[in-house]
Simulated scan of single mutants.
Amino acid sequence: MKKTIFITGASRGFGKIWTEAFLKRGDNVVATVRNTESLKDLASEYQDNLLVLQLDVTDKKASFEAVSKAKSHFGAIDVLINNAGYGHFGAVEELEEQEIRAQFETNVFGLIWLTQAVIPIMREQKSGHIIQLSSVLGVIALPTLGIYSASKFAVEGLTESLAAEVAGFGIKVTLVEPNGYETDFGASSAVQSKPLPLYDAVRAALQEGNKEEDYGVPEATSEAVLKLVDAENPPLRLLLGKAGVQWTKYAYGERLKTWEEWQDVSEAAHGK
């Protein structure tokens, strides 16, 4: 059945790939970007099905206005995909205050504004699906990506609460958690803190551990996302990529071991 999809950060990477996949199968898409020229090719090909809106997701008022325009244009919003975001690289000691705030403004606050704006529409429809782009780094953390992981851990907690809050309105919620992909996440779209030489060894070790086979093909995610939006009972969490599945299983296994080893201490701390 034809759906109306609202997706942020649609100028490149996953956002543009998924926008095109939805359009190809006949869905309506509202695609938000900072620069509308980035979707000029799709806008000319899918004039009736694509609404391109310029949006900085950190602007709360503009985010609410964009959702209102989308509803007026297509009459409904069936799926919201909060895809806009970027990665910040830097050891915790290297992070500047403004860098920290900017990471959360986009990855967390921007996602909150769009989510808040779309809930009343979906509640009135008695249906809808909110998809939040998290990351496998919202489940486990790596050195020099702490502030990015912190933003995605925040998205995870927020979204888990959201899912319980809106289930009674007929609204479904999913966290999508990709592992590394062959996008420009670590290149042109990334931000780097000014490096301190004493963390060079940490960065080198992280780079040495990178394996080409751990990075997925971005276009291969389209089928998974189409299946997700069509699912009658979508999962709360969906990992994308083989590496993410392996890392998460290992990380949770190690956490369980630690919690079990310290269980006596934990229970004694209960006090009764």
Score class of each variant (00 low, 15 high):
Ala190Phe: 05
Ser134Val: 07
Gly138Ala: 11
Val136Gly: 10
Gly186Cys: 02
Gly138His: 06
Ala205Ile: 05
Ala102Thr: 13
Lys61Trp: 02
Ile77Thr: 07
Glu219Ile: 05
Ala201Pro: 00
Ala31Met: 06
Thr115Phe: 02
Gln125Tyr: 12
Lys249Arg: 14
Tyr181Gly: 06
Pro235Trp: 01
Ile140Met: 11
Thr115His: 01
Lys40Ile: 08
Ser193Glu: 09
Ile121Pro: 02
Trp247Ala: 15
Ala269Val: 05
Thr183Pro: 01
Val108Glu: 02
Gln207His: 06
Glu223Met: 03
Ile17Ser: 09
Leu142Thr: 14
His270Gln: 15
Glu96Thr: 12
Thr19Val: 03
Ser222Gly: 01
Glu65Asn: 10
Gly241Glu: 10
Arg255Phe: 15
Lys24Glu: 15
Leu111Phe: 01
Lys126Pro: 02
Phe185Glu: 03
Ser11Lys: 06
Gly138Arg: 04
Ala167Pro: 02
Ser72Cys: 05
Arg123Glu: 15
Lys194Glu: 15
Leu175Pro: 00
Thr106Met: 06
Leu256His: 11
Val173Pro: 00
Trp113Met: 03
Glu105Gln: 10
Leu228Pro: 00
Glu208Met: 08
Ala84Glu: 11
Ile121Lys: 08
Gly146Thr: 11
Thr174Met: 00
Ser161Lys: 02
Ala154Asp: 04
Phe153Gly: 08
Thr258Phe: 13
Ala117Met: 03
Asn233Ala: 11
Ser38Pro: 01
Thr106Gln: 03
Tyr148Ile: 13
Glu105Lys: 02
Phe169Cys: 11
Trp113Cys: 01
Thr19Leu: 03
His88Lys: 10
Pro178Gly: 10
Thr248Glu: 15
Lys194Val: 13
Ala187Gln: 12
Ala70Ser: 13
Gly244Phe: 13
Ala231Tyr: 00
Thr19Asp: 02
Asp230His: 00
Phe169Ser: 13
Tyr250Phe: 13
Leu198Ala: 14
Ala154Phe: 03
Thr183Tyr: 09
Thr115Arg: 00
Val108Gly: 01
Ile140Asp: 07
Thr183Lys: 06
Val176Phe: 01
Glu182Gly: 07
Tyr250Cys: 06
Arg123Leu: 10
Pro120Trp: 07
Trp259Ile: 12
His88Thr: 15
Glu94Phe: 07
Leu236Ile: 10
Ser151Thr: 08
Gly186Ala: 12
Gly209Tyr: 04
Lys211Tyr: 07
Gln103Val: 12
Asp264Asn: 12
Pro218Arg: 02
Thr115Trp: 01
Lys61Leu: 12
Glu254Leu: 15
Phe89Gln: 13
Glu96Cys: 04
Thr248Ile: 15
Gly170Val: 08
Lys257Pro: 00
Ser63His: 03
Val92Gln: 09
Gly13Ala: 07
Pro234Trp: 06
Ala84Met: 10
Glu156Ile: 04
Val79Asn: 00
Ser44Lys: 12
Asn210Val: 14
Ile112Tyr: 08
Phe22Met: 09
Glu213Val: 07
Ile77Gly: 02
His129Arg: 00
Leu198Asn: 12
His73Asn: 11
Arg12Val: 08
Glu160Met: 08
Leu162Phe: 09
Val108Phe: 15
Glu213Lys: 05
Tyr46Cys: 05
